[in-house]
Every structure is written in structure tokens, then in C-alpha cells.
Amino acid sequence: MAKVQVITDSTADIPKDLVEKLGITLVPLKVHLEGQSYLDGVTIEPQEFYRKLAESEEMPTTSQPSPVDFVEAYREAAKDGETDIISIHLSSSFSGTYQSALLAQSMVEDEFKVTVIDSKTASYAIGMIVVEVAKAAQAGHSLDECVAVANRMIEEEQVYFLVDTLEYLQKGGRIGKASAMVGSLLNIKPILSIDREGVIFPIDKVRGKNKANTRIIELLKQNTVSDRSYRAGILYTDNREEAEKWAERLQENIPSLEETVFAEIGPVIGSHVGPGTVAVVLAPVQE
């Protein structure tokens, strides 16, 4: 049976130790700021990006990898032969990255097998899917079995996030249905999520961050069951201390929480959500 190699893009925001441990291949997107272009997570790291963002008067922009970038990654992954590839990417509603990967798939289809999956989500919500698939691949599961893990994760993940300002989502054109939430009401915090089509939408709105945090915990608890264990991802930008407080609250409120991973939101996703963003991803442990 062919081994399975897992490929994703840099917007999965997977901690570097997990990338190395699980042998995951990352194809970087680009971020453009103050006339400079950077490879996400390669030539610019999150902390440097948020520092530059704070000093800049311009909004950053981003761009997707080319099909050739993916072809190179696929051929490198398959160079030893007997390799199937599963390629999992940023929601097609946010970026053309998935389409680039599909084009690359068509360019190598006579050489080896590539399955491309639209995660319909972003940041470590993709990363959590990729990590579980990579664990299955390392355990010797087939391509079809790895695809099944990915599809279950996509269906079962919960994602909620808070942004300090909707300005970045608005100007980046990624706000989708959340545009209805934009208004001048003082201290109203929209709780945002990503629907099954990969589109950002407001799931609720409350006054103040503390109430928003409490409401997210309520939503998570409503959608968990007592006979399953869970894994969480806490996503943050320039606010690690806030992420650590979130982890404590989750541990207190989700007794069956088995693992929590801290994931720093990288420059590309950070360009669209802005500093001060925090997010929670929760998914059942895959059996």
C-alpha cells in the first residue's frame, strides 16, 4: 500500500514542532506590506508581522501560491515513489489557494494520485484537521481512510472567534454575512464563526468582551456530548496571555477536554482578522 503524504498551506498555522513531528509539507502564501512581499511563516514570522502592522499606515494584502508551487511540492513529496498525496487547504470562499491546488493536481494526475480537499475553514481550524490526518497517515492508514478523517473533522469542528475590529475583515473582503453586524453600537462584540460553506457569519452579538467570552463557552458546551473526548486549539495574534486565559476557561468548562494546542495566527490570516483576535476550535477526538 502506498504511503500517504499530507500537504497543506501556511494558513493552517500549525505549530512548527507538530509540522516537523508529523512530516507535514507547507506551501506558503504571500503577504504584502509597505511595498515588501514576504512568504508567510518563511521570510516573516507572526511577531515581526504584528510589529510591522502596528507601525504601518497601510493595510496588508495577501496572495495565493501558484499551481507551479503546488506541483513542485507534490513532486517532491512523491519523489521516492509509492506515495499518495492528500492536500488540504484554506476555504475556497476566502482564497484561490484551493483552486491553485486543483490545477496542480490536474498537472500531475498521470504521475501519481493527489486528492485535494477544501477545508472550508481557516487558520488552526485547518491545522487541527491536517494534524489528525497526518497522525492517521503515520499510523499507516490508506488515502481513502485519511480522506474520511478529514471529512469527519470538517463536519464536527466548532470554530468561534472574536476580533478587536471588523475593519480588517471588511477591507480584505472576507467578512461575508458578518457585514450585517457592522454598526456604531458601542462595545458590541460580534461572535463570528465559519459556516459549512466556508463563509464567515455572525452567530451572536453581545455587549463587551467578557460577555462574549462567556457566550462562546456556552455555545461550546451546548455542542459537546459527555461520552466523547475533545481536542481544542486556542488561536491568538499578539495576545498570548489572553489565549492562556481561554485555555483555563475551557479546561474548567469542558471536562472531557483531552488536549489543548496553542496556535499563533500567522501573517496571512492576521492580515484579514487584525491584531487582538482570539479564536477557539474544538473537535471530538477521532477514534
Rank of each mutant, 00 (worst) to 15 (best):
G183F: 06
G183M: 10
G183N: 11
S184K: 14
S184L: 14
L186R: 12
N187C: 03
I188G: 01
I188Q: 08
I191W: 02
L192R: 10
L192Q: 11
S193G: 15
S193K: 11
S193F: 15
S193I: 12
S193Q: 12
D195R: 02
R196H: 11
E197S: 11
E197G: 06
E197I: 03
E197V: 05
G198W: 02
V199H: 15
I200A: 13
I200M: 12
F201M: 04
I203P: 00
D204P: 02
K205G: 03
V206N: 10
V206L: 13
V206S: 09
G208Q: 13
K209V: 13
T214H: 14
R215K: 14
I217E: 14
I217Y: 08
I217N: 07
Q222R: 12
Q222F: 01
N223C: 05
T224S: 06
V225C: 03
S226Q: 14
R228W: 10
S229A: 07
Y230K: 06
Y230P: 13
Y230C: 12
R231E: 09
R231S: 02
A232N: 09
G233V: 11
I234N: 06
L235E: 14
L235C: 15
Y236S: 06
T237P: 08
D238R: 07
D238Q: 08
R240C: 02
R240E: 13
E244A: 08
K245S: 06
K245R: 12
K245H: 07
W246D: 01
W246G: 03
A247H: 08
A247F: 02
A247Y: 04
R249Y: 13
R249F: 12
L250D: 01
Q251C: 02
E252W: 04
E252V: 07
N253C: 04
I254W: 01
L257S: 10
L257V: 06
E258T: 09
T260E: 05
T260M: 07
F262N: 02
A263L: 05
G266D: 04
G266N: 04
P267A: 10
G270S: 00
S271I: 00
H272P: 03
H272C: 05
H272Y: 03
P275H: 00
G276L: 11
G276S: 12
V278F: 13
A279N: 05
